[in-house]
């Protein structure tokens, strides 16, 4: 068996794949956090709960209504996004004029309520969600076995990230978003409804988290704590990439997933701390983040 740096090559490649998979979720989650922070100035602590809720909506659709994976990919983000829109409109929007700490506390409280509710109803042990039939099995590559579903997750996440980037950088709606991120009062003075833009942005951001949750359901078990575990790493990634930077979130999300995977191969003890060590280094050398604009 061939080895690279003394590590069996298939072990290396399978950890790389695990890293890429984690990176896919990191990227989608940090992307949503980042656009929400950019326009609303809200650090959305409920993001992990929205990701978890996405997975649960998919599970409930399947087990209560017989609606399968493909429809869930569409419906779960929609449900999570609509919930997010209502939450933003009814509660979050009231806090923009006071200290940002209050919106942070509100979203933190919401996360606890969502998690607690799911734990109450579904228990804290994970629920299984089967890989859709069309994506079961895998490919035997010369150097490793590649499960089809995992390849799909990477492709789907990359496509969603690129589509989001195009939406923000190349469309009129994206131009409103970028402009309102810089100077909301002036965009409002041009006749644009910035409050509506904020609601849409929050809904879109948490909808992305919901979509990530559906993609994650067949890989990790569907459990109330799945979001809380992931979101801590995602916050570190947003800090590394630069608060509010779209491209930064995507690149850092995938990059850090891979670095984390590599650490598991070469120095497993540090796997769960590597991201935070990098965050500390970045904060020392480039406080605005790798892609952030210094303010």
């Amino acid at each position: 068996m061939s080895t690279i740096f003394g590590i069996p090559s298939n072990a290396l490649f399978s950890q790389l794949l695990v890293g890429l998979i984690n990176g896919s979720f990191y990227a989608m989650l940090s992307l949503g956090l980042s656009i929400i922070f950019g326009l609303l100035n809200v650090i959305n602590f409920a993001h992990g709960a929205m990701y978890m809720a996405g997975a649960f909506v998919a599970w409930i659709l399947l087990n209560e209504a017989g609606i399968g994976y493909w429809w869930s990919l569409l419906l779960a983000p929609l449900v999570v996004g609509l919930f997010g829109a209502a939450f933003e409109r009814l509660l979050l929007a009231r806090l923009y004029k006071i200290d940002h700490l209050y919106s942070l506390l509100l979203t933190f409280g919401l996360a606890l309520i969502i998690q607690g509710s799911f734990r109450q109803v579904y228990g804290s042990s994970g629920l299984p969600y089967a890989i859709p039939a069309a994506l079961s099995g895998g490919q035997k590559l010369p150097f490793m076995f590649l499960p089809n579903y995992r390849a799909w997750v990477v492709v789907a996440s990359l496509s969603v990230c690129v589509a989001t980037w195009l939406l923000i950088e190349k469309t009129k709606l994206g131009a409103y978003l970028r402009a309102a991120t810089e100077n909301p009062a002036l965009v409002e003075a041009f006749g644009v409804n910035v409050s509506l833009l904020r609601t849409m942005t929050y809904a879109f951001g948490v909808g992305l988290a919901g979509l990530a949750g559906v993609l994650a359901a067949p890989i990790y078990s569907v459990s109330p704590s799945m979001g809380a575990d992931t979101v801590i790493v995602v916050f570190a990634i947003v800090v590394i990439g630069g608060m509010g930077s779209i491209l930064g979130s995507i690149v850092t999300g995938f990059g850090l997933g891979l670095i984390e995977g590599m650490t598991k191969v070469f120095y497993p003890q540090a796997a769960s701390t590597a991201v935070f060590v990098i965050m500390a280094l970045v904060l020392i050398m480039k406080p605005a983040g790798l892609f952030g604009r210094a303010s």
């Binding site: 009062a185 409002e188 003075a189 041009f190 006749g191 644009v192 409804n193 910035v194």
Partner: peptide, 8 residues
Amino acid sequence: MPARSIAR
């Protein structure tokens, strides 16, 4: 009125 309505 909010600014957006005045602009309009």
